[in-house]
C-alpha cells in the first residue's frame, strides 16, 4: 500500500518552495572574493554569524580555529540533508533518501580508510557526514571497532556488504570502486517509471557521465591500461553507454580527446583540453561548473519536481567545499590565484 502512495501522490509544491527559500540563504557569489581577503579567524566569525551559527556555537567549546570550521561545515551539511528528509513526504522523500545513500558510501569509505591508516576513532568521526541511513550513533560504534571483521559484521545487513565481504584490511581502491558501483546500480534500479522519477533518473545519469568523464581523464593521463580503466567506470550513464565506455577506455590519449568531440560535454571543456595539457585541474573545474549549471537549468525547466531539490543539495555541497578550499588554501598559504581556480561558483 505504501508503494501505491509513494507512486501516486506528488507532494512537490511544499518542498520545492521551501528548498528555494533555503537556496536563497546560501552565500551569494560575491562573498567568496571577500572571504579570500580575510584571515581564518575572520572567516570563522563571518561563518559563525551566518546560517552556520548554530553549528559553530555548538562546537566552539570543543574545537577552535580550523578544526572548528571543518566540524561546523560537516555538521551543517549533515543537518541540512537530514532536514530535507524530515520536511519531505512520499515521492520526494523516497528520492532524497535514495540519493543520500551516497553519504553512507562516503562514511563507510572514510571509516575503512581511517582503519587502514590506523587513525583514532575520533579522527575518523571528524570526517564522517551522518546524512545517510547510517546515523551518527551507528557510525560512532562502527568507528570504535578495532578489527575489520567486526566492521564487516556490523554492516552485514546493509546493501553494501557485498562490496566489503572479501576485504581483509589491505588495499582499498577496489573496494571503494565496488561501493560506488553498488550505490549507483541500486539507485538506478530503485527509481521507477513515474514522471518525477524519470526526471530524477536523467539527472543521475548525467552525474554518472560526468564522474566517468573525470575518471577517464585521470586514468588516461596516468597511462593506465584499458582493462584497469574500464574496471573503474560506472555503467548506466546518459551519453556514455557501456559500448562508449569500452571504446573510450581503449583509445590512446590523442584519439580519446578526438572521440570526446562526439559528445555534448565537449563544448563545455573544449577550451581547456589539448593534447599537451599538463594539469587536469581546469577540466575538472569546468565539469563541476557544468554540473552546477545543468542542475540549475533543469530545475527551472521542471520547477515542481525533484530537480530543484537536487540542485539545492549540489549547491550546498559546493558552498561547503568552496569555504573549505578557501580556508585550507589559506592555511597552507597557497596563492590566491590557485585557490580561485579551485572554487566552483
Amino acid at each position: 500500500m505504501s508503494f501505491l502512495i509513494r507512486r501516486g501522490s506528488k507532494k512537490y509544491p511544499y518542498i520545492t518552495a521551501r528548498v528555494r527559500a533555503m537556496k536563497s540563504k546560501l552565500f551569494p557569489r560575491e562573498v567568496y572574493p571577500k572571504l579570500m581577503n580575510m584571515d581564518i579567524p575572520e572567516i570563522t566569525r563571518l561563518i559563525g554569524e551566518s546560517e552556520y551559527k548554530q553549528d559553530v556555537d555548538e562546537l566552539a567549546q570543543k574545537y577552535s580555529g580550523l578544526d572548528l570550521l571543518e566540524h561546523a561545515l560537516n555538521q551543517n551539511l549533515a543537518r541540512t540533508y537530514r532536514k530535507l528528509l524530515r520536511v519531505s513526504q512520499d515521492e520526494p522523500n523516497f528520492l532524497i533518501t535514495e540519493y543520500l545513500r551516497h553519504w553512507d558510501i562516503w562514511n563507510i569509505k572514510t571509516i575503512l580508510r581511517g582503519k587502514y591508516y590506523g587513525a583514532q576513532a575520533q579522527e575518523i568521526l571528524d570526517a564522517v557526514v551522518a546524512a545517510g541511513q547510517l546515523g551518527y550513533r551507528e557510525l560512532t560504534s562502527i568507528a570504535n571497532m578495532e578489527s575489520i571483521d567486526d566492521i564487516k559484521t556490523a554492516l552485514a545487513n546493509s546493501p553494501y556488504y557485498a562490496a566489503i565481504a572479501d576485504y581483509d584490511g589491505g588495499e582499498l581502491s577496489a573496494i571503494e570502486n565496488e561501493l560506488d558501483k553498488i550505490y549507483y546500480s541500486r539507485l538506478l534500479a530503485s527509481i521507477g517509471k513515474s514522471k518525477g522519477e524519470k526526471l530524477s533518473l536523467k539527472y543521475i545519469k548525467t552525474e554518472i557521465d560526468l564522474k566517468n568523464l573525470k575518471t577517464l581523464f585521470r586514468t588516461k593521463k596516468a597511462g593506465l591500461v584499458k582493462d584497469d580503466i574500464f574496471e573503474l567506470l560506472i555503467p548506466g550513464g546518459m551519453e556514455f553507454k557501456s559500448g562508449d565506455l569500452n571504446r573510450m577506455s581503449s583509445l590512446p590519449w590523442s584519439d580519446f580527446l578526438k572521440g570526446l568531440e562526439d559528445y555534448s560535454y565537449w563544448s563545455e571543456i573544449s577550451e581547456v583540453v589539448s593534447e599537451d595539457m599538463t594539469s587536469l585541474m581546469d577540466v575538472e573545474a569546468l565539469l563541476d561548473k557544468y554540473a552546477m549549471g545543468y542542475a540549475s537549468r533543469v530545475s527551472h525547466y521542471y520547477p515542481l519536481s525533484i530537480l530543484p531539490i537536487y540542485d539545492y543539495m549540489l549547491r550546498k555541497n559546493m558552498e561547503i567545499n568552496n569555504i573549505r578550499t578557501i580556508v585550507r588554501g589559506k592555511k597552507v598559504k597557497l596563492p590566491d590565484e590557485i585557490i580561485r581556480k579551485h572554487l566552483v561558483m
Binding site: 509544491p13 528548498v19 527559500a21 536563497s24 520536511v87
Partner: peptide
Amino acid sequence: KDIGAAAVGAMAEREEL
C-alpha cells in the same frame, strides 16, 4: 492547494514571505 502548500513551505524558511 498547491500555492498554499508552497507558500507555507517558503514561509517556514523565511517568515517575511
